[in-house]
Simulated assay, not measured.
Amino acid sequence: MSRLPLDQIDAFVTAARMKNLTRAAEAMHLTVSALSHRMRLLEERVGHKLLARGPRGVELTPEGQRLFDAVATPLDAIGHALQRMSARNDHVITLSLIPSMATAWLVPRLPDFLAANPELGLNLQSSTHVVDFDREPVDMALRLGGGRWPGVRAEHLFHEWIQPVASPAFLKRHGKPALARIGSLPLLGDPSDRWKEWFAEFGGEAPRRFVAQFDDTETLHQAAAQGMGVALARLTLAEPLIKAGRLVPLTGKCLQADFAHYLVYPERSLAHPDFQTVRKWVLDQARVDA
């Protein structure tokens, strides 16, 4: 074997600990299909089935248990070693968040905050990888999920809402339909597959197939902005495209998304001298969107 598949091992260890692929994918900011793909690659690499579906989720096979026993502790040790070696500046807060949330929500609000707090540095880690506070020198994170993560505090910021959107060029070609006839237009499949719930709530029928399907929200929004079809957009993340006129809501109706936005942090962050300043600011900003 050549290069170590650390992303696959990380996915395996996370799934094994949580015993649930959906929760593991949520914790890693991946789709279930992306997590399953990493698992398949690892199983092909080692030549054994590592996880098996059980009555309450997934369970380790005998081969999976042996691999877990061999890699979980060293993986944790690597994380702890990196954390201890990382230089720490007491006036810098490190915040982790996904790139689309950084672009759409946090960055536009930063100039006023930094101007009012010139002595404080904010280090943004923009990544789709969910931070492991036990292994990484990160003080807080913005997460989209169910609000229950082991070993951390999670404060609710605001709900996410979803709404069908399309580009102006697309609407010029197809027209803006009545609410119950949205399903007659070319639709783009979304990562969480909420179209079924949309039609159940507001009427209409889903098409037999989507024009295209996407495993991440940002690419879905960009595809809609390019005129490929109608997307069921997460409004917080799609806001820049809507404000720029590249996406247009098809209706004023919205459906509450399955996940909400949270500020997440470990207990140790409370000892950071500037933590409460950033925390209060994030919570104040979230109240505007609540």
Rank of each mutant, 00 (worst) to 15 (best):
P5A: 13
V13F: 00
T14H: 01
A15R: 04
M18A: 14
R23I: 07
E26L: 05
A27L: 10
H29M: 02
A34G: 10
L35G: 01
S36E: 07
H37M: 13
R38W: 02
G47I: 10
H48S: 11
K49S: 07
R53I: 04
P55M: 02
V58I: 14
T61M: 03
Q65P: 01
R66W: 02
T73Y: 10
P74R: 06
P74E: 13
I78N: 08
A81P: 00
R84D: 11
R84I: 09
R88D: 06
D90V: 02
H91G: 03
V92Y: 00
I93T: 07
T94D: 00
L97R: 02
T103C: 01
V107W: 11
R109D: 06
F113M: 08
P118H: 04
P118I: 01
E119K: 12
L120R: 07
D139R: 07
R143F: 03
L144C: 08
H159Y: 04
W161S: 00
I162T: 03
Q163V: 05
A166S: 01
A169N: 07
L171S: 04
L171F: 03
K172D: 09
R173E: 15
H174E: 01
G183F: 07
L188F: 05
W198T: 01
F199D: 01
A200H: 03
E201V: 09
E201N: 03
R208Q: 13
R209K: 11
V211E: 06
E218Q: 14
H221A: 10
A224L: 07
A225S: 15
G229L: 05
V230N: 08
A231F: 09
L232Y: 04
L235Q: 11
T236C: 07
A244K: 12
L247I: 05
L247G: 11
L247K: 06
P249S: 12
G252P: 03
L255F: 05
D258K: 06
Y262S: 04
Y262E: 06
L270G: 00
D274R: 11
T277I: 15
T277Q: 12
T277Y: 04
V278D: 11
K280N: 15
W281E: 06
L283K: 08
A286H: 11
